[in-house]
Simulated assay, not measured.
Amino acid sequence: MNEAVAAHEPTIRLVFFLGILTAMALWEVAKPRRKREISRRLRWTNNLGIVIANTAILRLGFPIIPVGLALVADERGWGLFNIVDVPAWLAFTLSVLALDLAIYLQHVMFHAVPALWRLHRMHHADLEFDVTTGLRFHPVEVILSMGIRLAVVMVLGPPAAAVLAFEILLNATSMFNHSNVRIRVGVDRVLRWFVVTPDMHRIHHSIHPSETNSNFGFNLPWWDRLLGSYRAQPRDGHEGMTIGIEQFRTRRDLWLDRMLVQPWRGPASGYPINRDT
């Protein structure tokens, strides 16, 4: 089974990516949560441009990806679940949970360390919030994130199928919870006990630092609730809240070339957790 997972991994991920991107884009058109102020042509061409660049960098820069490393770890007996004998279903479940917790902690770290915030703020500098915002990350952040996931896989020794499931889940939920879609309040209230919803994650993209530094989860909402970073609603309301950060608020800042150089422009002040400068 592991070999089959590895053989079909690129196709599986591409099918899920295109399917979810298309579904969320259509949902945004049919039932938008917020009024769109900036043309999709401007934002989507540049946001999807960064996706293409990041994909190329990862494919060219990393000889092995998490699924492949999980297979190598299994063959060589590396990692916790290749040492400790546990049922396959338990190893799968615990692996997905552990990988998700690692991404939550990584996200907090990128908000807490000013040098890392310089990279991550490109994601937050989008002036609107839709499905493509969930794909907009600086290439250096993507490289560091890949390195962290590889390290977790090495230590954990998870089943390759669990790693693939998590990678698909991470990509899918990032597009879902960044989407500009309207979900009924009652439905959202129930959903956010099991998955990070758009209304929950939109708060994280508020211009107010106290809200930017909340709701860090991408997949599961439990880490925010358990670790004290959960916020239920934005103080300005979902329709009235301002998306983005204080810096980089012009249309020109949405262009790909400006996004790539944002880490080296201006101070990293105001937003890093518990930092004034």
Rank of each mutant, 00 (worst) to 15 (best):
E128A: 05
R136E: 11
P114I: 13
R192V: 10
W222D: 01
A115L: 11
H124M: 12
H138V: 14
H178I: 13
D126K: 07
A125P: 11
E211I: 11
D130N: 14
H201L: 03
H138T: 15
V187M: 06
F110Y: 09
S210D: 14
P139M: 03
H120C: 08
L105W: 13
V185D: 14
R149Q: 12
V153N: 13
P221H: 14
I207H: 03
E211Q: 07
M175I: 08
V190H: 07
N177R: 12
S214R: 09
A172K: 09
M175P: 06
F216A: 12
V190W: 02
L119T: 10
V155P: 03
H201S: 01
S179F: 00
T132C: 10
S174M: 12
A161P: 08
D188P: 06
G217L: 10
I183L: 12
L164W: 07
D126P: 10
M146S: 05
V131N: 04
P209G: 15
R192H: 15
V181E: 04
L127R: 11
I203C: 00
H107S: 09
W222E: 01
V113C: 10
A165T: 10
I143A: 04
L169W: 08
G217Q: 04
I203W: 00
R182P: 03
P159R: 02
H205F: 00
R202S: 00
F218C: 13
G157R: 08
L150D: 02
W222F: 06
V181S: 03
E211K: 02
V196A: 05
H208D: 03
L156V: 11
D130H: 11
R189E: 03
R149G: 08
H123T: 09
A161T: 05
L170K: 03
T197F: 01
W223A: 10
V185I: 09
V181T: 12
L127D: 12
V152D: 05
R182I: 01
L170M: 12
F216W: 09
M200F: 03
N180W: 09
P198V: 14
I183V: 10
T173D: 04
V187F: 09
M122A: 14
A115M: 11
A115I: 08
V142S: 15
W117D: 05
I143R: 07
N219P: 10
N171K: 02
V190C: 05
F110W: 05
S174C: 12
N177L: 13
A172R: 09
M122T: 08
